[in-house]
Nucleic acid binder design. Structure first.
Lengths: 155, 155
DNA sequence: TCACAATAGTTGCGAGCGCAACTAAAATGG
DNA sequence: CCATTTTAGTTGCGCTCGCAACTATTGTGA
């Protein structure tokens, strides 16, 4: 490959080890966390995210567009995800009285109960798969590293 | 929530910071890397993975089942992904002469040229988004941390 | 004030992929 | 040596989600 672009700055050994360990791990980790959530609470990670964010919002309701931005979903993606939650009765839609363009996603009491029931299992899963594999030192290093990376993404 | 399960071991501040920084970052990171690859080489991350693995295989060919295991895809998922690459002429299928159940995915010269053209841009993207945001120390810490996590997934 | 732009959300369409069912070809074992 | 099991791969179906087009409402500037 070096013939094509002599000045490509290929990864050295340390860099490659970090990249490979990262990229190979996150897929499996997410898969395992997702499976845990499905088994313990019959819920997808995406649905769980919605319930968490709504539960933390004032009056347990949010504008669709805010929710979409928060979850990195397109408007259409969020519409469909909410469709499922509405059908199950975890969330309802309300038209905003201030701006009649906006739909408010509202967490129902049932949705809140589902979240409360799921949360301990999810935390246990995150501990088992992630937190408890690392020392406090490693957790701090990792926070610093990912904060750096995250900031770089918005330059 | 504590009423439901008094003994849930919730995340403390350090743990929560690590978890949030990780989970919030990886989605955006993968999205950016994918976008970079699409822009520079009109290729998905999945297709790139296939080309890389084939290029590293003896005679640039692999059994479908080995490829599926390597890429964490189900057989059906891999069949469909290969369909696209075959249609574009990057890969061909061959029936194995040793075991007539197995299909070999074979990297074509064109597919190899596409990979060679894409690789420098992809490496630059990985550097820009990930490697260059971290010190050598951080890279080593991160490798150790993710190795721990990865090993835990297979217990 | 009124045409035009911007914003919020939904829908049709298509891509990607998992699950279950299926075919074909080995491997096994009585 | 033949019946059963195992393995490899494909296909139908369904799910999730992005893109583009669309409607409805609000904001803006001449």
């Amino acid at each position: 490959m070096s013939r094509i672009d002599e000045k490509t700055n290929w990864l050295n050994k340390t860099e490659m080890a970090a990249w490979i360990s990262f990229i190979e791990t996150i897929g499996d980790l997410q898969y395992n966390l997702d499976s845990d959530l499905r088994e313990s609470s019959d819920m997808t990670a995406g649905d769980y995210q919605v319930l968490v964010y709504l539960s933390e919002s004032p009056e347990r309701r949010t504008r669709m567009c805010d929710l979409a931005a928060r979850l990195n979903l397109t408007p259409s993606g969020l519409t469909r995800r909410l469709d499922g939650l509405v059908k199950e009765g975890s969330v309802t839609r309300e038209v905003s009285t201030e701006d009649r363009r906006v739909q408010l996603a509202v967490l129902t009491p049932q949705g809140y109960r589902e979240l409360v029931a799921a949360a301990p299992h999810h935390v246990a899963s995150v501990r088992h798969r992630f937190i408890d594999r690392l020392t406090t030192e490693q957790l701090k290093h990792l926070t610093a590293a990912f904060t750096n990376i995250r900031e770089g993404l918005f330059e």
